[in-house]
Design a protein around this nucleic acid. Structure first.
Lengths: 340, 340
DNA sequence: GTGAAAGCGCTAACAC
DNA sequence: GTGTTAGCGCTTTCAC
C-alpha cells in the first residue's frame, strides 16, 4: 500500500506528461476538460496526495509559520498559552497555514531554535511572544528578511509590527478603582521585570498612586514569577509586613488566585478584609470572583496571525502597532477598604 | 544580504564540488582535513545554514512530529493542553525533532488535517490525544504506515501503542474514599461519553457504589462538557434535586472548580456541607484545596514523545501500553458526610 | 492543450 | 579524497 503515489505514477497511468498532470491537479484552466477528468479520476483512484515537502522546495514557500514558546521549568502553569495557541492555530487553519511549534527556555538554545526555523527555511513567518528587555529575538529577526509579528512591544530602537495590551492603562485603571474604594496601602506582585509587560503594569500602578498623592512604598512591591508558587510566596511576604496592605494587585491571575488562597488562610475575608485583583481573566478566574483585567488572549492570537498572514502576502498593514485596552472586570474579590 | 547561501555558493567560493562540501559539512571522515577546514571556514564566513526542506525531500524524513489538538469552541479553557504541549515540546527538543501543531474541532476537517500531515509527508510520526469512541483518527492512522502513539485507549479492534491513565481505578479509589467518609449520595459530573476516558471514570465510580451496596441513582449522573460553564450548569442541576448529593465528583478539575464556586453560592461550606473532588490536579487546583486525582500531564507528554521517537527509530518498545495510576490527592474540599 | 527540460537544495551511489 | 551523475517530487518556463 505504501508504494508512493507521485505525479509520475499518475503520468504513467494516464500516459500524460507529469507537467500536464501537475497542471490539471493544480486547477490550471489551460488543460482540456477531458484530460483533466481523466487525470482527476486516476488521482482519486490511486489516492494521490501531493508531497508537500517537494512543493515547498520548489515554491520556496513553506506555508508554515513558527512559534517558539518561552518555557520556564518543568511546569507550564499558565492557561494563557493554551488560549494563545488555540487562537493562532484556528486562524492559521483558516489561511491553510501550518504551525511549527517549539518550546525553549530563554537563552542560547532559544536563539538556536529561531535560527533553525529561519535559516533552515522552515517557516514563512514567525510570531514572537512575551517580549523582554533588550529582546535578542527581536534583534535577531529584525536583521532577517523574514516577516514576524510580536505579542508585546520592545525597548529596542527597532520598528516592527506588534500587538500589545496597554498594561499601563489597565493597571492605572485598576489601581485607581481601588483607591476610589478607599485603599491607600496597595501591594503589588509584579512579574519578572525583564519581561517588558511587567514594567508597563508597574508603571500604571505607580502613576495611579502618584496622581492620588499616595506615597510609593517600595516594600509593597514584590517581584513574583507569574507562577502559583511565586504568588504564594509573595503574598505571604506582603501579609507579614507590620502595616499590611489592604489590597493586593498581581501581574497575572495565577498569582492573584494564589494570593486569594493565602489571604483566606490568614483568616482574611476576601473583598472585605482584603481586596485582591489580577490580570488576564483566564478561565478559572471568574469562578473565584476575581477582579481582573480582561485580555482577550484567544482573539489576540487570531489578530497576530492575521497580521502575519498579511505581511507574508506582502499586503500592507492597516495598523503596524495595536495597543489594546484591557477591560476592567470588577468582581467580588475587591471591595471597600476596611476601616483599619 | 538575502542572497541565498547554499552548498553551491560554498562550492564556488572554495573551488570544491558540491558533494565534497556536503560531506565536509555533514562531518564525514573521508574528507581531507585541510579541505574540511577550508570549507568550514567558508561556510562560517558566508553564514551557511542547510536548507531543511531540501534535506527532508532528499532524505525522505522530516524530523518532525505532528500533533492535532481537538479544540471545541472559541475558548480553550483547559490548562491541560498547555502542560501536555510543554512536555511534548521539551522532549522532542531533546531529540532534535520539531513539532507541527494544528488545532481542529472533531469532524471531517480534523481528519483532513491528519491526511494533510500524513499523506503530505509532513511528519515522521503523530501523537493522538483524547481518544474517543470508535475513534476515526486511530482507524485512519492504523491503515497507514506512519508511526503514532495515543494518549488514551480505544474501543476499536486495533492494537496500537498508547499511554493512558487508569481512570477507572482512580475514580474507584476516590469514590471509595468518599464512601468511607460516610457519603452515600454522590453526584457525578461526567465528561462527554464519546470521550473514552469519560467512560472509565464513570465505571470506577459505579463499581465503588456497587461494591458498597449503594444503589446507583441515574439522577446523580450528569453529563458535563469539561468546561467551566458545563460544570456550573451541572452543579446547579445536582443541587436542585430534592435530595441533593452530599458529595460531587467531577471528571476534571475545571468542572470541579466550578462546582466549588456554585456550592459556595448556595451557602454550602465546602468540605463540611458538601464534598467536591476532581481529576487532573491542574495548577490552580491546589490553590483551592481541591481533592483530586493527580495526572502528571507534563510527564505524560514526555513519555508519549519518547515512545514515538523509538517507534520512528525502529527500536522496539519495552511497553506498548502504559496504564498509569493516578494518585489520589486529598485536600480540604472533601470531608466527612454531614449528618441528616 | 501538451510535453520536454530545467531547477529548487540537498544527499548518495559510483567512478576515478 | 574528490568529482560526476542521478534523483527526491514538484512547478515553471518555453517550445510546439
Amino acid at each position: 500500500m505504501s508504494t508512493r503515489v507521485t505525479l509520475k505514477t499518475i503520468s504513467e497511468h494516464t500516459g500524460l506528461s507529469v507537467t500536464t498532470v501537475s497542471r490539471a491537479l493544480t486547477g490550471y484552466d489551460d488543460v482540456a476538460v477531458e484530460t483533466r477528468d481523466k487525470i482527476m479520476e486516476a488521482a482519486a483512484e490511486l489516492g494521490y496526495y501531493p508531497n508537500l515537502t517537494a512543493r515547498q522546495l520548489q515554491k520556496q514557500r513553506t506555508d508554515t509559520i513558527g512559534l517558539i514558546l518561552p518555557t520556564s521549568g518543568p511546569r507550564y502553569n499558565d492557561p494563557y498559552f493554551s488560549e494563545l495557541i488555540a487562537g493562532i492555530g484556528d486562524e492559521m487553519a483558516d489561511y491553510g497555514l501550518d504551525l511549527l511549534l517549539s518550546t525553549r527556555a530563554p537563552g542560547s538554545e532559544e536563539i538556536a531554535a529561531y535560527r533553525h526555523m529561519v535559516e533552515g527555511k522552515r517557516v514563512d513567518g514567525l510570531i514572537v511572544v512575551r517580549t523582554r528587555k533588550q529582546d535578542e529575538r527581536i534583534a535577531y529577526l529584525a536583521g532577517t528578511a523574514l516577516p514576524f509579528v510580536a505579542f508585546g512591544r520592545s525597548d529596542l530602537e527597532i520598528d516592527f509590527p506588534y500587538i500589545d495590551e496597554d498594561g499601563e492603562s489597565g493597571f492605572f485603571q485598576l489601581t485607581q478603582h481601588l483607591i476610589s474604594q478607599g485603599h491607600t496601602r496597595i501591594g503589588f506582585i509584579s512579574a519578572p521585570l525583564n519581561l517588558l509587560f511587567a514594567n508597563y503594569r508597574l508603571e500604571g500602578y505607580q502613576r495611579a498612586l502618584k496622581e492620588n498623592n499616595i506615597p510609593f512604598n517600595p516594600e509593597y512591591v514584590i517581584q513574583g514569577d507569574l507562577t502559583r508558587q511565586g504568588g504564594d510566596r509573595s503574598t505571604r511576604q506582603l501579609l507579614q509586613l507590620s502595616t499590611r496592605p489592604t489590597a493586593i494587585i498581581a501581574a497575572n491571575d495565577l498569582m492573584a488566585l494564589s494570593a486569594l488562597s493565602v489571604a483566606r488562610e490568614y483568616g482574611l475575608k476576601i473583598g472585605r478584609d482584603i481586596s485582591i485583583a489580577g490580570f488576564d481573566d483566564v478561565p478559572p478566574s471568574d469562578i473565584f470572583s476575581l477582579t481582573t483585567l480582561r485580555q482577550p488572549i484567544y482573539d489576540i492570537g487570531r489578530l497576530l496571525s492575521a497580521m502575519l498572514f498579511k505581511l507574508i502576502q506582502g499586503e500592507p498593514l492597516t495598523d503596524r502597532h495595536l495597543l489594546l485596552k484591557p477591560k476592567l472586570i470588577i468582581r467580588q474579590s475587591t471591595g471597600q477598604a476596611p476601616q483599619s
